[in-house]
């Protein structure tokens, strides 16, 4: 066919993992091979994946002028070649060996993973850790109360959780607590006596819970600080806690930024959402964003609408933050408040 013949006359600029070539009629007219170094090959691949044009490609283009190109990435330099490329056999003689390719891929993969870790992933892990800690602290605290009530059942009614744990970890026994702290003595108490051995066990246990509580606080501070630094728009709009939770539900800021507002609206309500899809129950109106006053303070019949308005702006905020756009937090907040007021 005429068409095919003509295409065969075309010069094609083609790049593989080992070099750049000018190919015409199944013949290599010119080439620039990369150096035989896994590091270099990985770097070239990395640039190519980012959509950049390599030096080698520019050089060959400058030299040969009008060329077709074999990849979308290179359409700045020439038209995309439409025929099927069958270059594997002609390029074979220039190819480097497989072990070099494997080594380059290992380097490239590791580099891509290293460079893709963003602040949002730390945020997600921190939020999940805090959520796990909550459960752990509750379980341990319940057990401590249960056990300590054999000795000093009246204490838990007199002090807050944090103080309760603090006192037991410091003194262990009832007598020592009453000796050192200003706590009202109890007439006709119902606690049994203990030895030094039980007291030691109590102290250690309570100390563990105390540490967990302190660590949980530390995470809260971290989330607050980092959210302000890295996701200012989200933080202004949702507050650090809800913002952090939304990022945690998606796993990273990048993933959250990719989500449509309608998904953000029901994040955290997956169970209800899938029940809706599978069994035709009513769709959920809101997920974790319910915890924000914008949504939960709205009258019950308006909550769905409030959630939608709020989620729309969160989606914008997340994208601004991920792409490091300008700060529009206050503006977004005002828009949400005005719209909700009109409901």
């Amino acid at each position: 066919m005429m068409g095919e013949e003509k295409e065969d006359e075309d010069k094609v600029l083609h790049t593989t993992w080992f070099g750049t070539f000018i190919i015409q009629k199944k013949e290599v007219l010119d080439k620039k091979l990369f150096s035989k170094d896994a590091e270099v090959i990985a770097e070239k691949k990395f640039q190519m994946e980012k959509g950049e044009i390599l030096e080698e490609e520019k050089e060959l283009y400058d030299k040969w002028g009008e060329v077709y190109v074999s990849s979308e990435r290179l359409t700045e330099l020439g038209k995309l070649y439409q025929g099927e490329l069958r270059y594997a056999s002609i390029l074979k003689e220039y190819s480097f060996n497989d072990s070099l390719l494997q080594e380059a891929l290992l380097k490239l993969g590791s580099k891509k993973i290293r460079e893709s870790i963003e602040f949002g992933e730390h945020m997600a892990k921190a939020v999940h850790t805090a959520q796990d800690l909550n459960e752990i602290i509750n379980i341990k605290l319940e057990r401590l109360r249960d056990w300590y009530s054999l000795h000093f059942p009246e204490l838990e009614k007199k002090v807050k959780d944090e103080e309760y744990v603090e006192l037991i970890s410091k003194y262990g026994s009832r007598d020592k607590i009453l000796e050192n702290e200003d706590i009202e003595r109890i007439e006709d108490h119902t606690g049994g006596e203990i030895t030094e051995k039980e007291s030691e066990l109590y102290k250690k246990f309570a100390k563990g819970i105390k540490d967990d509580m302190e660590y949980r606080e530390k995470i809260h501070d971290y989330v607050e600080k980092r959210m302000e630094d890295y996701a200012p728009n989200m933080t202004a709009l949702t507050g650090p806690k809800l913002g952090g939770e939304l990022i945690a539900l998606e796993g990273s800021l990048k993933d959250l930024a990719k989500r449509p507002a309608s998904t953000i609206q029901v994040l955290g309500a997956e169970k209800a959402l899938f029940k809706h899809l599978n069994k035709g129950t009513k769709p959920p109106k809101h997920g974790v964003i319910l915890q924000h006053p914008y949504v939960h303070r709205a009258p019950k019949d308006k909550r769905g609408k409030a959630a939608r308005i709020f989620a729309n702006k969160i989606a914008i905020a997340a994208r601004l933050d991920y792409f490091e756009g300008e700060y529009k937090g206050e503006e977004l907040k005002k828009q949400v408040e005005e719209k909700i007021k009109k409901l």
């Binding site: 790049t15 993992w17 390719l101 891929l105």
Partner: peptide, 25 residues
């Protein structure tokens, strides 16, 4: 793949074969 020389690990989205066609042939 560090232990097995015939595995070539490619970190890419299969939706964009453009990103790995040059190494695969």
């Amino acid at each position: 793949s560090k232990k097995r020389k015939n595995i070539f690990p490619v970190l890419a989205d299969a939706r964009n074969p453009e990103n790995y066609k040059d190494i695969i042939g």
